[in-house]
Computed example of a mutant assay.
Amino acid sequence: MTAVDQLPQDLVTELRAEAAHPLSGGDSANAFRVDTPRGPVFVKTMPRAPEGVLPLEAAALEALRAVATDEIRIPRVLHVSDRALALEWIDEASGAGGEATERGFGSGLAAIHRAHAPHVGWLSSDLPERIGSTPVDLTPTDDWAGFLLERRIEPLVRTAVDAGKLDPAASALLASLAPRAEELAGPPEPPSLLHGDLWAGNRVVDASGGNWLIDPSSHYGGREYDLAMMQLFGGFGRECFAAYDDAYPLSDGWRQRVPWHQLPPLLVHAIRFGGGYGAAVMRALRTCA
């Protein structure tokens, strides 16, 4: 069996795939470089994906592409189904970009966040209510603080504790923090279109030093969520944050609110991978207290 034989037939036909080359990376999907008459294409397949996950990712890419400036590029969606997603190929750089790349990313992300967003919650009522593969109530609201606490942090804490991945003391600690949810989420601001999973691995630098965004889990919400995720695993320079703040100034105290906004990704990692992520959740909760 060739690699092309591992791809859905409708994708092979639509792209006129000539050859496929497996790529490394990813823990829940298979990735390929697919050769077509128009050049290489990136293909992600998820044979056992929950229904709608890849169409949701495609819609997120299109939403980001609609508001992004030249400072951050979003790959074009070439094919999407419940089993496969094909995207414009990116010629990646062999190393990280320099100061100009970092500043370009910061100002480009600020432009995405400044674009009009209608509410907190879903991109569209026609899409599955998920952030990534995690089911979430994305019914539109104007209350980012309540959304973050009641629809993200509290359910994930319950799930993590029930799964034995988190110290049960987290429940009481979170209950003591809940009355301060508005303070911890920051001053009210217009909602933003969020990437939703903005760690350094989802920022690609191309051979010319240009920035790209991939693998979004987009929804509308508070922009400090993306900035907190960027600091969870590192990979973004200080020039990036300075350029962001120059273009779209952040509210006072935003750095002190980072641990609160990092709780959802930390909790998802604790549930999925265990290890030290449960302890990281407890540290974040105690930092907020």
Rank of each mutant, 00 (worst) to 15 (best):
M1Q: 12
A3N: 00
Q6P: 14
Q9F: 15
Q9N: 14
D10S: 14
L11S: 04
V12W: 04
V12K: 10
T13S: 10
L15N: 08
L15K: 02
L15M: 13
R16C: 04
E18Y: 13
S24Q: 14
G26Q: 05
G26A: 04
G26K: 01
D27K: 13
A31I: 02
T36I: 11
P37N: 04
V41G: 10
V41S: 11
M46F: 13
R48F: 15
R48G: 15
A49F: 00
G52Y: 01
V53T: 11
P55I: 03
L56A: 01
E62M: 11
A66G: 06
T69L: 04
T69Q: 01
D70V: 09
D70A: 10
D70C: 05
R73Y: 09
I74E: 05
I74H: 05
L78C: 13
R83A: 13
L87N: 07
W89Q: 02
I90W: 03
S94L: 15
G97L: 07
E102A: 08
R103N: 03
R103K: 03
F105I: 02
F105H: 06
G106H: 01
G106V: 01
G106L: 05
S107C: 11
G108A: 00
G108F: 02
L109N: 08
A117I: 04
V120S: 08
W122Y: 15
W122P: 14
W122L: 15
L123F: 04
S124K: 09
I131A: 03
T134A: 10
L138N: 06
L138S: 02
T139K: 04
T141M: 02
R151G: 12
R152T: 05
E154H: 09
E154C: 10
L156Q: 08
T159W: 10
A170E: 09
A170G: 02
A175P: 00
L177M: 05
P179Q: 11
E183F: 07
A185V: 02
P187M: 08
P188G: 11
E189S: 07
P190M: 05
S192Q: 03
L193A: 13
L194Y: 12
G196E: 06
D197C: 02
L198G: 04
L198V: 07
A200G: 14
G201C: 11
V204L: 11
V204T: 01
V204N: 02
S208L: 15
G209I: 13
G210P: 15
N211C: 09
L213C: 09
D215G: 01
S218D: 09
Y220P: 06
G222L: 07
G222K: 10
E224K: 06
D226C: 03
Q231W: 15
L232V: 07
R238N: 15
E239T: 14
A242T: 11
A243L: 03
Y244Q: 05
D246L: 15
Y248Q: 13
P249S: 09
L250W: 00
S251L: 00
S251F: 00
G253N: 04
W260D: 03
W260K: 05
Q262R: 06
Q262D: 00
H269Q: 09
H269F: 09
I271N: 10
R272C: 04
G274V: 03
G275T: 06
G275S: 10
A289C: 05
